[in-house]
Every structure is written in C-alpha cells, then in structure tokens.
Write a protein that binds this DNA or RNA. Structure first.
Lengths: 253, 253
DNA sequence: CAGTGGTCTAGACCACCCT
DNA sequence: GGGTGGTCTAGACCACTGG
C-alpha cells in the first residue's frame, strides 16, 4: 500500500485553528481535500484508520469521521467496513450544486459575461402565479439575460421573481450572479427543485445563441425556495448543448 | 404553529426495533418520512426540538439529529439555529440517485419494458478502452437496449462492460435493470460520474424512438466505478425529451 | 483472528433567533 | 434571556473484512 508523506500530519494538525469559527471538521476536510487533489495524498493510497488519525491530529474520532464523510460524499474517498479507507483515482468532480451559472463558470476558470436583455415588472401570468404561489393579479419582476463564456453566447436565462427586489438593477446583474445578489439582499435560498430536459430552439433563442433554428437545446427549469418555504424565484434556462453540460458525481448509499 | 398528532410519538417509538439490524436513525427517518409524505405530519408544522424529541422517542440526541439530517437532505425539513425545525410544503422529490432507469420508472408507477437489441462481445475500441481503463486489444460486452414506458419507446441505452459478466443474458436484461443484475452478481457500484447534455437524433435513434431525424435528444453519459475504483460500466443513453426529464432537489449548504 | 468502519450513547459548550 | 440547532468530546459495542 502506498503511504502518506509523514510531515503532512503535522502540517495539517498545525493548520487547524480552534479559534476560527469555521467548524473543525470542515477545516480538516478542506485540508485533506486539497492534499488529495494536489496529489500529495496519492490516488489509490490507503488512509490511516480513524482512531489513529484522530490521535495523530489531536481531534476526536467523531470529528475525523465527519470530515471523512464529507470527502466520501464528494467521491474522493471510498470506505469499507473492516477493510479501510482508500483514496479513489483522480476524477473530476463538479457536483450539481445550488449555485448560479456565474459561479459555475468562474470556478472552471472561464471568462464569463452577462448581458441583461430584459428587466421589467410585468403582470403575473397564470403559470408564473401558480409556480411561485403568488396572487393572480399581482406583478413580477421578469429578467432575461444572455450569458457568455469566453466570448461565446452559452445560455439564455429567463427568471421571474416577486416584486420588491429593487436592488436587482440591470447594472448589478451584468456583473454578479442572481443568487449572489439575492444573498446580499439577505434572501438565503434553501431548497430548489430542478428539472433538466431538451427541446428545439425557437427562432429567438437560435438567434441569441448563434445556432440554427430548431436545433437542440439543453433546458433547465428551477423553482427556488426560501428558509420559510416561500418561492423566491422561478427560472427557465436554455443552454447551447455543444458548450454546456451538467456534470454530476453520484455516490451509492 | 401547527401541532403533531400526539399518538404519533408512541406509534413511532413502539415501531423502533433495536433487534433489527437496520440502524436506528434509519428506522426513525423512514417513519418520519412516511408520516410527512402521507400528511400526518402537516406541511409547515414545527417539529419538537431535538432534546425533547429524543426524550420522547427514547433515543439519544445524536441519533435524532442523524435521522433529521437525512430528511433535510431530501428537502423535507428546514432547520434554522435558534428558530427550530419545520416541515416544508409538499413538493415532489426525485433525487438524481444511483439507480437504473428501470427502478426510476417503476418508482413512478409506470409500466416499464425493455427490448434487448444487441448483446455481443466486441473488440475494445480505443475510446471505450480509455474510458474503462482496459487494455486496447481486449474485448468488451456491448449492450443496446430499447426502454419502453407505458408502451412508448423512451430511451436507447448503450452500455459497455468488461467481459466476464456471462450472467447478463439478454433474457434477464429484458426483465431486470442492469444495475440490479450487477448487484446480484456481487458487483456493487460505488461512484459514478455522469454528464447530461443534448444533441440531434441520428437516423437510427429517430427510428427507434419514433421521433423525427435531427430532432432534439436528451443525453446522459456515465462511467460507474467499483469499490476498488475500477471502472465497471460505461454507458451512453439517449432519451425522448418529451417523455423523460431529470428531476433533482437541491439543498443549500 | 485482529483490525476496521458503523452505530449509539451521554454530556458539554457555543452561536444564533426570537420576543 | 430563554430556547434552538451546531459542534465537539469520550467511550462503548457491534458487523464486517481480511489474512
């Protein structure tokens, strides 16, 4: 079995900061993740067992377990009772998380840009009203944005929000993701239901994305909810399938 | 705040079986999930706090926490420090899990059927060899299946596996999902990387699925790995977008 | 058989929300 | 300020894997 570099233990232990408000298990898993992704902990190597690891790092076993559990859910570790914990072979890992496309693209180090095509308050249509759980005669904020990556148009993002988010100006939306702006406004999204599909491009979409009319589009529909369970956003997004895909890592159990 | 039916506590407590090998927290979360989905615990109602709940049910607080955590990850509960735990409003929830399409369809109570179009051992192509990490001159099992739901063709499933799965006969594949058969053979899949996209249908696909050539298709590509980190299966699936979508529930943090 | 991860318990302190 | 969930600890027993 491949071994770990020995000085790594001390480095990790020293870097843990009990004064830091971020949880110990989080600090630990972050450092281990970095060591795995950088290859310092080699792929396929066997980890120390939990008790030994806890002792070596000066934390309790439950804390170690919690840190390792996080890495298992990211698909970086595989654990088997009686056998031990192993680092899996290197594989890309971009979970389908609760982030805006802007954050996705930034993370994969693309240059992203946004053009706000529409920013208007409209009368609530029946469909939007039922999706957002709003009264039928009210008003909603309707956004349409064109998203670029490396200069090429990648996606058309259509969003509907309850009115009252005056802070969401077109200028700010051009620079920041929708979810990030909402977070700044104190709106924290907790749960979202999402549906991924495909369909033909309309003439408008084809023109915006620079593809042929009737060509295939990847679609994503999403309703996002608040802490309190009230719907905050409904979005229908379409993506150029040659430039965008949804990647997931699934872990059994 | 809406309250719980009082007798529910006793029912749940009585139904917990410490002799049962299934973990206590799992038993508990299963029962709570059923109570929530059936509406016995009303949507929007506030739960008892953890300590009280643990006392009432006769288990420790960590066990209660673990059970509740599972329900949070399924999007059934929302917890806020200092505020409490609430049941969210009713929303469908089909997470993007590690299951075969057969299990998906069965769960949503459709009649599913499978026709095995191809079941052959072929020379390993360069692409398949690199995906599965197999030697270039070896052989792979190549499967092509047509999946029906309610009598209509829904998907064309193309799969490549290392040879040696003789038990995967065409007859058995017509009745059971691939993953289920592999599980019966003692092959437990632990991690899978999955990519969802869209493209035009080829003539073959269009004919099989009963759509127009060049029409949009929803695509899914997947590599599945063993406990030991060795690739077990590579699949490229295409779906009729009017009959199939990928639904996910996302939970923040 | 020894070693490993999986589970459960008991108790403590803290950060945050609400009124 | 009282109550809530979030975190951390210490120790115990069990189920499974492997040689």
């Amino acid at each position: 079995m491949i071994a770990w570099p020995d000085e790594l233990f001390d480095e990790v232990q020293d870097s843990l900061d009990r004064e830091d408000p971020t949880p110990l298990h989080k600090q630990l898993s972050t450092r281990l993740e970095a060591a795995i992704r950088s290859g310092r902990i080699p792929a396929g190597s066997k980890m120390l067992n939990e008790i030994a690891l806890a002792l070596r790092l000066g934390v309790s076993r439950p804390t170690v377990r919690r840190a390792l559990q996080g890495l298992v859910e990211q698909g970086l570790l595989v654990r088997r009772r009686g056998a031990g914990t192993q680092v899996v072979s290197g594989m890309v890992n971009r979970p389908l998380e609760l982030t805006s496309l802007a954050e996705d693209l930034r993370r994969t180090s693309h240059e992203s840009g946004t053009e706000v095509l529409l920013h208007a308050v409209e009368r609530t249509s029946d469909e939007i009203a039922s999706r957002l759980g709003l009264p039928r005669d009210g008003e909603v904020l309707h956004l349409r944005r064109l998203r670029f990556a490396d200069g090429a148009p990648v996606a058309v993002l259509e969003n509907y929000l309850p009115v009252g988010f005056a802070a969401l100006t077109a200028a700010r939306l051009a620079e920041t993701g929708l979810y990030e702006l909402l977070r700044e406004e104190g709106v924290s999204i907790r749960i979202a239901n999402q549906s991924i599909g495909a369909r033909r491009a309309t003439g408008l979409e084809a023109g915006l994305l620079g593809i042929s009319r009737g060509g295939p589009l990847l679609t994503m529909e999403r309703i996002a909810f608040d802490d309190s369970g009230t719907a905050v956003e409904y979005g229908t997004h379409v993506y150029r399938p040659d430039l965008y895909r949804f990647e997931t890592t699934l872990v059994a159990k």
